[in-house]
Write a protein that binds this DNA or RNA. Sequence first.
DNA 1: CTGTTAGCGCGTTCAT
DNA 2: ATGAACGCGCTAACAG
Lengths: 337, 337
Amino acid sequence: MTKAEFQRQPTSFDVARKAGVSRSAVSRAFTPGASIAADTRDKVMQAADALGYRVNELAKGLSNQRSNLVGLIVADLDTPFRSAQVDALTRELVATHYHPILFTADGPVQTARTLHQLLHYNLSGAVVTSDAPPSEICIECARLGVPLVLVNKQQELTAVDRVVGDNPHGGRLAAEALIASGCRNLVAVRPSRQSYSLEARIEEFLGAARAAGITARVFAAGPQTYEGGRQSAAGLVAQAMAPSTGIFCPMDLMALGLLDALRSDHAVRVPDDVCLIGYDDIPQASWQPYRLTTIRQPTTLLAQAAVSMLMARIENPAAGRRTSIVPVELVRRSTTR
Amino acid sequence: MTKAEFQRQPTSFDVARKAGVSRSAVSRAFTPGASIAADTRDKVMQAADALGYRVNELAKGLSNQRSNLVGLIVADLDTPFRSAQVDALTRELVATHYHPILFTADGPVQTARTLHQLLHYNLSGAVVTSDAPPSEICIECARLGVPLVLVNKQQELTAVDRVVGDNPHGGRLAAEALIASGCRNLVAVRPSRQSYSLEARIEEFLGAARAAGITARVFAAGPQTYEGGRQSAAGLVAQAMAPSTGIFCPMDLMALGLLDALRSDHAVRVPDDVCLIGYDDIPQASWQPYRLTTIRQPTTLLAQAAVSMLMARIENPAAGRRTSIVPVELVRRSTTR
DNA sequence: CTGTTAGCGCGTTCAT
DNA sequence: ATGAACGCGCTAACAG
């Protein structure tokens, strides 16, 4: 015995033999809704239990032409909102007897490449929370019958299932909250890297402000990070700190950086001098030094919507493409009056 | 045409036919280090390219008795340190041509159940960053030849591969930093939920302090969260705020909550009245209001160590179990003097 | 170096 | 309701 030898997992054949039935019987016993006698089923289950048998998902997937793996394509996983999102999606998927296979993709090209890799696994579907994949990829997935759900992504030319937070409503809520706080000079912080969700929030924010007869404009800021928020403070103060200013930063992480810089580097009092409102409601937004007023996106609801949408398409691949809109809500804290 | 029909992925057979070779040739062309003529390989690749062929990982895994899926068992994924950890692990895995399949497990029981589920996928291995699985499970994995790597987990009775940050060294660094700041009254915060890593840090912290002739004791605190840190402040102030107190909170997330409560609810000045030092160096630790002195655990190094250890065991399953220790370092910021 | 053959473990007709 | 036979797509062992 020179090489270590490992014990093999029991197969349906082993179970069949021990139960004194055929392999088909075993298969049926583990297939919900298959026609099998109750006592045969019991015999099988008993034998399976004794042997510690589990159906091999790989073989099952190969045979079915469809595994119960679901691709999870994520960018910025180390970011509070995204990690909460992935956590929620994972829980939701396993609750539905699927397993997430994780991919990180930082750009649209990577997302496309990644989506290609998925196809190797006969996935049941994929959820994309990184950049929106190019239309060609969406088409390819559709052609191969791989359901795709985009979370908080742009409406593609290609019709594809999407679930989005109610960005326009969020933008409007932000404007209204700021106006109600007495702000008469509104500004929306726009990160350097464009993003569908952020843009949608900002656009409606501006629209709502102007509809109320309030001046509102956009400030071109840095990257979508805490540091990006910090760095934007200087420019913002220089350009835009008229009295009764209200700032909308459509992403909490950035808003927190901005808030820190405003207070400590520029002696701006929030909410006394200016008001600030964020978006997402990440855990840190409620921490003591911040108490940031923000628009909450419920990650659990988003995840549930995404998964149920995926299931719906798996059941009925031919149905029309849908968009599911998840409500958002204003969370009042201490950066507005 | 009543039902939608989807296009099938090309198989090795299709490629073989188009290239005018056998299926084995195709397989060999995609198997690094297989013996195949250069021009046959080229013909295959060309045909494969034209058809958009990809090897089916499911079939490959079934045939090899081993997929290139790696299980990632995680708890508290929505926490800053854990999400960074998972991010790093994912990148490291895909760089090594493996794909992570994600599981969230919140307790030891769940971890065990989860580990069982993995076995359905002929995994190449698994990385566990949630609670340490019971020995029986480790044994079972070993029996089935599924490599297991535990990250920051206790030394099990069962010998199993582990990678850990240098917890004792971290604890010592913390004690030294506090003493160097003039603290003569040390206290370690111990969360309610026991954990191997935290315990190891605390133990060495206490040891180092006492070796230096400094009094040091443990404060029994709340859960391992920001809120847990906040809630612990009151008790800590009541019991332990002698002059020149130095606090070691072996987990940043909790330390930040503690710091906030200390400052705003109890008017304790940090670092003037007391010093505080955390552990992990999560991104938030460097944010403006905190500037927390802490012990950095490099998530990237941990991930690299874990993956390379996994690879080593895959190559040589019979080798002796190892423990890889990843260095930590002190990051001096503004909560120590 | 190449083609042929035989599994990998399971789902699913197709008879009975 | 049950068993036999075939196919899912691929790799590995065997001849040539």
